[in-house]
């Protein structure tokens, strides 16, 4: 693994900047109109939220079905702080940054509090608990006064735009990468692979489960906060069970344990319903149909656990394809045998 290759980082940063400039130019030239710009912002938000869920689902290997709940916590807490901050007339970056960090923090704290007892449960039971938690959060927000209740919360400063959404998504992804390729990330992944073996080599599984879950909630909160500042209006019914499902679907379709898969799936699944808008009535029917067919024919998702790497692609296209194929199919081309 070439993770300690600092050149690689610069290379990726360069690619990210170039991609940004291209998008920006296309927007200025109105090739990408305001409508599509909005879709791109939603893609960025979904990348953040689904990327964070991938930490729980793909790397920690725990099934969570209440991610929209964390998004809601982040969205509401950052929005409430943001409304309060408005009178200070801070520069946009500081205003948005403070609000998002606050949203992430509150969401992370709640994630930790829920994670400690919930993560004692395994598999489907954890799924149910997180599902239940997501529903409770929604009911609570619905019934509180200061969240605006069922009428929703309006008057949130609309300060999120394509530029800051793009870079926040880049930073979140960079952190997630840095995490999974560090000793802490390896500890998290070892729990997915075999919890008993992880304990047998000295991993404090309780601690690392809680850590993974908390970080996951933290970034989901940031994603939620960004959503709040782009919509400028929040309604508790947005963060329902369906929303949690949508996020899970992005992660699974992209490949659990593949962040680049999450990026691709976010882009496809966010724009697909928009592209199908002309078939409005059949839109969700087609969406669900594609989902089922996809799962039947490629249950490990588009990328499996493989990561797409620009540098590897450039330096050795053939070897790269081989490695991608191996990781995506879960087989090993040079190892042979099962």
């Amino acid at each position: 693994m070439d993770f300690n290759n600092k050149k690689n980082y610069l290379f990726n940063l360069g690619a990210v900047i170039i991609f940004f400039v291209i998008l920006k130019l296309l927007m200025n030239g109105n090739v990408i109109n305001r409508y599509y710009q909005g879709i791109i912002v939603f893609i960025c938000i979904n990348i953040i939220v689904a990327g964070s869920l991938n930490l729980t689902l793909g790397f920690l290997g725990q099934l969570a079905l209440g991610h929209a709940g964390f998004m809601a916590v982040g969205a509401y807490s950052s929005a409430l702080l943001s409304i309060y901050l408005r009178s200070l007339e801070l520069p946009v970056i500081m205003h948005l940054g403070t609000a998002l960090l606050f949203g992430g923090l509150i969401s992370g704290i709640i994630g930790y509090l829920i994670g400690l007892p919930a993560l004692r449960l395994r598999g489907d039971y954890l799924a149910i608990i997180t599902l239940g938690f997501g529903e409770i959060i929604r009911v609570v927000i619905n019934n509180l006064k200061f969240t605006g209740g069922a009428q929703g919360l309006s008057g949130i400063p609309k300060i999120a735009n394509f530029t800051n959404a793009y870079w926040i998504a880049v930073v979140v992804l960079a952190f997630l990468y840095a995490l999974i390729r560090s000793r802490h990330g390896r500890a998290i992944i070892s729990i997915r692979e075999d919890e008993i073996a992880a304990e047998a080599v000295g991993i404090d599984t309780v601690k690392y489960k809680a850590l993974g879950f908390t970080i996951s909630a933290f970034f989901a909160g940031i994603g939620g906060g960004l959503f709040a500042h782009y919509m400028a209006y929040l309604d508790p019914s947005i963060f329902n069970f369906m929303k949690s499902v949508e996020i899970v679907v992005i992660v699974v379709l992209g490949g659990m344990g593949s962040l680049t898969g999450t990026i691709l799936a976010s882009a496809v699944l966010t724009s697909l319903p928009e592209l199908l808008r002309n078939f409005s009535e059949y839109r969700l029917l087609i969406y669900s149909f594609v989902l089922v067919v996809m799962m039947i024919f490629r249950p490990q998702g588009i990328f499996g656990t493989a990561e797409f790497s620009l540098k590897n692609l450039m330096s050795s296209p053939k070897g790269f394809m081989k490695k991608m194929k191996r990781d995506a199919s879960g087989d090993d081309l040079n190892g042979g045998g099962k």
Partner: peptide, 24 residues
Amino acid sequence: EAPRISALITAIGMSLFLQNLALV
């Protein structure tokens, strides 16, 4: 024989499909 989560997603997909089928 697929991972449990894939089957779960399929079930969710099936649920959405039937709901929207009924809607249509």
